[in-house]
């Protein structure tokens, strides 16, 4: 009996794994998000190399020193790079199409990840006419504040 070949081809077992987390923000990010609620963007500065970070790192990744100094950051910046996303995947936060952007906010020394919005994104040919690396952008605040990165709703293009 046990010599019979299997009647069907090998199967798959479908499953879903759900794992809940609650992560501590710590002092720095807590302060950063509290400030966002008040429409202020705060970064930290390394006492040794003077680089200004946003999000505000608690220590400088290169000098490995604590970043004690907080500085207020401007709300305009330059597009360092961007991409137009057409890609759907399970559990993604932003639904396509959306524009992911790396913004160099004035006064900082690193790029911040966010999104560009405020106009029709459905035709990427039109989008690529408008969005260019090196272009200027400005923060648009979310009317509803929750103390997370989307208190900045998006970055809008500043026309030349």
């Amino acid at each position: 009996m046990a010599d019979e070949k299997p009647k069907e081809k090998p199967r798959e077992m479908k499953a879903q794994v759900t794992v809940p987390y609650e992560m501590a923000m710590g002092r720095n990010w807590h302060r950063f998000f509290e400030n966002l609620k008040e429409e202020r963007i705060m970064g930290t500065k390394c006492g040794k190399c003077s680089r200004v970070f946003i999000p505000p790192r608690s220590f400088c990744p290169r000098c490995f020193e604590d970043n004690e100094e907080w500085v207020e950051i401007g709300q305009e910046g330059t597009i360092e790079t961007w991409c137009y996303s057409n890609l759907m995947f399970y559990g993604q936060t932003l639904k396509p199409p959306f524009i992911a952007v790396q913004v160099h906010l004035d006064g900082t020394d690193v790029g911040l990840q966010h999104r560009i919005a405020g106009f029709d994104l459905s035709d990427f040919e039109k989008v690529r006419e408008l969005v260019k690396s090196g272009g200027r952008v400005r923060v648009v605040w979310n009317k509803e504040k929750k103390g997370n990165i989307f208190d900045i709703d998006y970055f809008e293009l500043i026309p030349e």
Binding site: M23, M25, T81, S85, Q92, T93, L94, Q113, S133, G134
Partner: peptide, 25 residues
């Protein structure tokens, strides 16, 4: 991380594309 990078994730294509755009620019 769920605070700053994940919200804007366009998967691996998003990251590599932004890099390519930066390089071309």
């Amino acid at each position: 991380d769920p605070w700053f990078l994940k919200p804007f994730s366009a998967g691996a294509p998003g990251v590599f594309t932004m890099q390519a755009m930066e390089w071309m620019h």
